[in-house]
Design a protein around this nucleic acid. Structure first.
Lengths: 208, 208
DNA sequence: CGTGTTCTTGACCAGTTGGTCAAAACAGGA
DNA sequence: TCCTGTTTTGACCAACTGGTCAAGAACACG
């Protein structure tokens, strides 16, 4: 008896389109309202589907959320993964900063989804934080320590240097409303942040 | 006819105690769950009161939230208000950074409450952001620009310098879970942040 | 076309939510 | 002690919530 083995779920064209619409809508809603604050009705409306139809594609509200978070966790760390131990130290770190800021500009909803989850105590992510994330940070911290020892960059605690990069770049996505309220109209916050952070980190990383 | 004029609501001992318990419980719950995610039952339980009793002291869930936010807005900006135009520039800014970090250490719930509100689009705060906050920032930006012109500190855009201070200090309250997960046990994140940020801003502000 | 499969939905359900209300419990001064 | 104003609560409500289900609609493909 011959069968096509379904390694990945089959994914007809309709399935792909609808799961994508759902995830996109859910990202929009979860990133603003957090998990508890979001409702299936909002997500369904945003996706242009009926609520029972959502639950045809995903078994539960939580499944949608988890799906978003795991997808996010994978791509979110890419820029850090790409930090090249063999590259030119300052250039590598500046590239990392720039890419993180670009992500704040291009994927603010993802950034807010992440922020929401962390602020709420990371109930569904604490494992990934203490596992994947921690391991990656440990690995890259060692690289940075090497650069410091070699006198290539200033002497800065690698952990807190990374926290600084995260804080400074993600701030422009997560606190976008505040930033715009303070700057007033006629500003391009992300562009200004680009040159500001460029200068900041250039100065900061330069060994004395 | 003589009457004691009730400028402030009367506030018997019981009233003071209970409103305080409610606000404290609400801060705990709202700061973790956001407005929509929080429930009156959770707040009531946390405060040790019955739900109808909550609504004896506050007319609605929203009233509690607004009460917290306005109280917060007042005290949250104090450190910036205290930035003294006549003080020693670097010292003034370093003091500001230290005080902001102390607030992250001592009032993390307030910080998260604020973060939650902003991430959700600041529906109940946008006015204060575009008013009070914007005005204060404008005032202090002028002071900072003066310091730069006088060659007392490095040439940094005042707006984005303030954003940086906010981002770097509040990160340790809002992303506390992540910071601890990455650092692992045996660390005192806020203490480390203290000396790290001290070094960072010392180096950053020094005019070249 | 016909037919088996995939997709969609209206009706429904039990639990939760913010909020009301009248009546009871409690203070504290005269 | 009684009496009046304050505080507390159990019972209740309508709207909303996540989720189910059976039946119908749309699809793919021989």
């Amino acid at each position: 008896m011959l069968m096509t083995v379904k390694v990945q779920p089959p994914k007809t064209r309709i399935q792909r389109k609808n799961t994508q619409a759902i995830l996109d809508a859910a990202l929009e809603v979860f990133s603003r309202q957090g998990f508890r604050g979001a409702t299936l009705d909002q997500i369904a409306a945003e996706a242009g589907l009926s609520k029972p139809n959502l639950l045809y594609y995903f078994p539960s509200k939580e499944a949608i959320h988890v799906s978003l978070l795991t997808e996010l966790m994978t791509t979110w760390l890419d820029p850090l993964r790409d930090l090249d131990p063999d590259g030119e130290p300052v250039e590598e770190l500046m590239t990392y900063v720039r890419r993180k800021l670009e992500m704040s500009r291009d994927f603010p909803r993802e950034s807010r989804l992440f922020a929401n989850e962390i602020i709420q105590g990371a109930p569904r992510m604490i494992g990934a934080l203490e596992g994947e994330l921690r391991d990656l940070v440990e690995e890259k911290s060692a690289v940075i320590r090497g650069w410091i020892a070699a006198g290539k960059i200033a002497d800065l605690d690698p952990h807190h240097l990374l926290f600084s990069i995260w804080a400074l770049t993600q701030h422009y996505a997560d606190f976008d409303v505040q930033v715009r309220a303070v700057l007033g109209p006629g500003h391009d916050p992300l562009a200004e942040a680009g040159s500001f952070l460029d200068g900041l980190f250039t100065r900061l990383l330069r060994p004395e």
